[in-house]
Design a protein around this nucleic acid. Structure first.
Length: 401
RNA sequence: GGGGGAGUGCCCGAGUGGUUAAAGGGGACCGGCUGUAAACCGGUUGGCUCCGCCUACGUAGGUUCGAAUCCUACCUCCCCCA
């Protein structure tokens, strides 16, 4: 793999350099050095690729870092291409993985792809985005696949950290996983990508795409990597499976609440990567977080929702009051209500767990802590009252005979 | 094809015949502190008709007064040799 492209000794103009710098904001790397400026010098819209694997149905804020960058290119007049990896999702990208990924069924993949797109267009302009499914070209003849495979060596494919670590840990690597970068690289060939975006964890795959393009005698893409947003635990990358994510479809109150829980140490990153600026100088971390929450809720919902979410937050956690609206839960009982059963029903926990929390003083009725005893209450005492589990879970009990 | 090793609770990981519902850690949950931050402290973390009972250590059988721990078969995974 050694085809040469980009043989342009001429220097890009000042305008191109400036545009390249602007488009590189927040990015970690854009390779090769100066490549983007040379491409921009041509004055023609570039073909910008982002590949996504529909392995999880929901987009979270972590995904939006790259999507925002894509939107930036789009606004600058470039052609944005969203590649849905419906085919590669079956293979499972090994990037950043210490274990194999479970394979998804075609149905799951289709469903995820649909919701993923829906959410991506909260950020991208649908009318100016070209969406392609890579099954379109990857569902190829075995001969073609073999010729693709012939373009890479095992040694090269094994170079990556993920694999090295797994080999050391004696963890399995499937032959299919080994193929992944090849397939992703072929996507670039198929759509003539000129720039490919991805998280820093994608660096190997993105660069490998250049090799694949070269092997097919195509111009090589520039690759731009974006930082990985930490999760709301501030430690590990934001990921749904780690449970530390903020989904773009989270209800306003939840989104705001989660953002308030982000550790201060991650505040700068959140501001930079999600809002593209530094937190306001002189503000307290908590106020900076509120502003972050307001803006993001407004972005994914609207201003009104943002105001409502903040009010809800103040009510619950600053003033320690019950929320304005509490869901009703109907329960059928006559004479007496078994409290653990009612709590289990309302909050989706087991009766044993309800008892435990009760013992620890974590249950309130209309704002008053309920004692561990008694466990049974006359219907008249509980009907219509608000039960609270911990700090943030509420439910109004409606008892039917 | 042959040889070796492993499957434990949400996760990791101890435990190799009996006070073991199973050490320890992580996570989660409740409480305290607070800016619902982090850090920290205390508690909890199989289920239930809860001072007792039931179900649990890959699956199915077996040995034993008694097994996660021993035996048999099966399933799954890993490593090595060919």
């Amino acid at each position: 793999m050694s085809a040469k492209t980009d043989k342009r000794p001429d220097q890009p103009g000042r305008g191109a350099l400036e545009r390249a710098a602007a488009l590189s904001s927040n990015s970690v790397e854009a390779l090769p050095e100066g490549g983007l400026a040379r491409q921009l010098d041509r004055e023609a819209p570039l073909r910008i690729k982002l590949g996504i694997d529909p392995t999880a149905p929901d987009i979270h804020l972590g995904h939006t870092v790259v999507l925002n960058k894509l939107a930036q290119f789009q606004d600058a007049g470039h052609q944005v291409m969203l590649i849905i990896g419906d085919y590669t999702a079956r293979v499972g990208d090994p990037s950043g993985r210490s274990d194999q990924r479970p394979m998804l069924t075609p149905d799951q993949i289709d469903a995820n792809a649909a919701t993923f797109q829906e959410q991506a267009f909260k950020i991208l302009d649908r009318s100016r985005t070209e969406v392609r499914f890579n099954s379109e070209w990857l569902r190829m003849e075995a001969e073609e696949l073999f010729s693709l495979m012939a373009k890479a060596t095992i040694a090269r494919l094994l170079e990556r950290d993920d694999f090295q670590k797994r080999i050391e840990a004696e963890k399995p690597i499937s032959a299919l996983e080994l193929l992944y970068p090849l397939l992703q690289g072929y996507d670039s060939v198929a759509i003539d990508a000129e720039v490919e975006l991805g998280g820093t964890d994608q660096k190997f795959n993105l660069l490998f795409g250049r090799d694949v393009q070269a092997a097919y005698d195509r111009p090589q893409q520039t690759v731009m990597t974006m930082p990985i947003l930490p999760g709301i635990d501030g430690v590990r990358r934001m990921s749904k499976s780690l449970g530390n994510y903020v989904g773009v479809t989270d209800p306003p109150e939840e989104m705001f609440g989660k953002l308030m829980r982000v550790p201060d140490t991650s505040l700068n990153e959140y501001w930079q990567l999600l809002l593209g600026e530094d937190p306001p100088a002189g503000e307290s971390p908590s106020e900076a977080k509120r502003e972050l929450g307001r803006r993001l809720v407004a972005r994914f919902h609207d201003e009104e929702a943002a105001a409502g979410a903040e009010e809800q937050f103040n009510r619950l956690f600053v003033r320690h009051e019950a929320p304005a609206e509490i869901d009703d839960f109907e329960l059928i009982a006559d004479g007496e209500v078994h409290l653990p059963a009612a709590l289990a029903e309302i909050f989706g926990i087991s009766r044993s767990e309800a008892r435990r929390v009760l013992t620890q003083g974590g249950v309130k009725r209309d704002g008053e802590v309920l004692p561990p005893e008694p466990l049974d209450y006359p219907v008249s005492e509980l009907d219509g009252s608000v039960l609270q589990l911990g700090k943030r879970r509420f439910g109004r009990l409606r008892i039917k005979a």
